[in-house]
Amino acid sequence: MNKFNINTGKKIKNSKKELIGYTSSLSAAISYGISAILAKIIVGQITTPLIASSFALFFGFFTLSIIFYKQLMNIKSIDKKTFLFLFLAGLASCIGVGAQYYAMNNAPVILVAPITGANALFAILFGSIFLKKIEKITPLTVIGAFMIIIGIIIIILSRT
């Protein structure tokens, strides 16, 4: 009886965790969708994507530092290795933004968008290589990712 209760408890905990994860990821996509509209206005009328990204990143950092100042007090709890991974994650995303900017300057959107849109496949590929111990990648996830990427490519191309 106890075992059943423990398992049920674990299942409820896992499904709650999954719900938070799915909701957060889709909310992040909506948030980025809104920012893409803002970016279209900013890049069209105000300044270049690199300068806009620099200030947007700073304001994002500044806002979160104020909202979560209590968590920021625990910064010493982060070990050096985690700091390094966060630095590399930030560096890799900057390379992504910068490279996309130069790609758009050199090739038409019809070629660039499908390639950059496939970044989730690289995440899955790298995940299957480097995250073997902490992540299980199922065939259904890969098929779902492919469908999303194909759908997104169609959406992007329909707007160009």
């Binding site: 994860g21 809104i34 995940g127 995250l131 902490i134 299980k136 990648i137 990712a145």
Partner: peptide, 19 residues
């Protein structure tokens, strides 16, 4: 919460919401 293999494709749907 759900791992990079699930979160990344879902996060990649942002152009849908932008459209």
């Amino acid at each position: 919460n759900i791992g990079v293999s699930k979160a990344s494709p879902l996060f990649g749907t942002s152009p849908l919401f932008a459209a």
